[in-house]
Design a protein around this nucleic acid. Structure first.
Lengths: 211, 211
DNA sequence: TTGCGGCCTCAACCGCCGGTCGAGGGTTGA
DNA sequence: TCAACCCTCGACCGGCGGTTGAGGCCGCAA
């Protein structure tokens, strides 16, 4: 069992396997007396974990997400078996909706958002009425915090939410463009285009300002 | 400077930049009195570092190796995006660091701009006809390079300059707002508001995209 | 049945990575 | 002159990815 993997990955230890189990990356069956019993599938899974870690430098948290996605029937690794060249390989995600688990995956209540952004109830109301921040279901994502903070800062210059509506409109138009180009699926391409859009925008604002 | 990057990467701080310099990932020039002075090339480099870190989870050590490789004229660009590796900048061109000029103070001829951005004559013509890049007198500033590069990248996704007009419009509107608030003088306040505008914009695009 | 190696759990600990903080001090511009 | 930056340098920090060790159960051979 253990030696099988050790043959391939020099640095796998029992303690590491235990650790990976504790982290929820594998769940080997147990014998009646509690010993771990690794099935062939478990070994395959571990192989995936170890190569992803070694060849793509992925953090376990991310690997776990990928495994989860694969379990839910989504497509497996992009390169299939990377195996040999440790050189340079795209990160590649197994799933569409992968979006960094950070900001977008955050779910905040209205009050949490308000406190996190350090804004007043009134300001939040105004932001919502102009759709600068919008709830999904009854939660807000982390980007809403950034929006709210920026709006608050604008507020200190006397700029009110209603003056910011054009930002919303512009953003919507850009999202439209991005979706038209990248399709409705959220993937790397979408991400890249979004980054690009923001970069273009920043450069334009600066260049027009300096004339 | 810092603001520019902060617009794109919410979590970049001065201390982080100092840290990255200490690790040898960037080596900004210094003013006579020792202040860091980031050239356009430095910023491009940082952009690479930050996206590699965020989107591909690469450890700094690995990113540093990649940068080193790129400096030596190789391109191990892992499907990620170095955008414009130093190699692409033709030698002899007055790109920012040569004159220690700030990007906006840079003065490029039309041809210099074209080569620095690595775009075709046709594309540049189109960009001008849609006023995405505009000459001041008969020179272009460094931001024009960034705009042109972004447009070129969009081009690779089939997005043509005319599709980018709304960006120009949005930028103009924002500049209008900024000038209305900060006055026509270009000062710190203007800069701050511009950074803010770009930040708000970035957050909005991201948040609307993730719904 | 005793002994001994190997597995178990759980908590404590560890080293490295990627920064942040703060003290002490210079620079800049109003 | 003063506030608001910026600088350096060293201490500190939290999280990640494990390792170690104490205390205990299992299984097999002598």
């Amino acid at each position: 069992m253990l030696q099988v993997l050790q043959a391939e990955f020099a640095d796998v230890t029992i303690s590491k396997l235990r650790f990976l189990e504790a982290e929820g990356l594998v769940t080997p069956a147990r014998t009646a007396s509690g010993y771990r019993k690794f099935s062939a599938a478990d070994i395959e899974r571990l192989r995936y974990v170890l190569t992803a870690q070694r060849d793509q430098y992925l953090p376990l948290k991310v690997i776990k997400e990928h495994l989860g996605a694969m379990d839910r029937g989504l497509r497996p690794t992009p390169g299939g078996r990377p195996a040999a060249p440790a050189a340079v390989e795209p990160a590649g995600l197994p799933v569409a909706e992968d979006f960094g688990a950070d900001r977008t995956e955050l779910k905040l209540t209205r009050e949490e958002l308000r406190v996190a952004a350090g804004i007043s109830v009134e300001l939040l109301e105004q932001l919502e009425s102009h759709q600068l921040v919008v709830a999904r279901g009854n939660h807000y994502d982390g980007d809403a915090i950034l929006v709210a903070k920026a709006a608050a800062e604008f507020g200190r210059y006397g700029v009110e939410p209603r003056h910011l509506r054009p930002f919303r409109t512009a953003a919507d138009r850009e999202v439209g463009l991005i979706e038209q180009v990248a399709g409705p699926r959220r993937d790397d391409k979408t991400q890249e285009l979004a980054a690009l859009a923001v970069r273009l925008h920043a450069a334009l604002v600066r260049s027009r300002l300096s004339r």
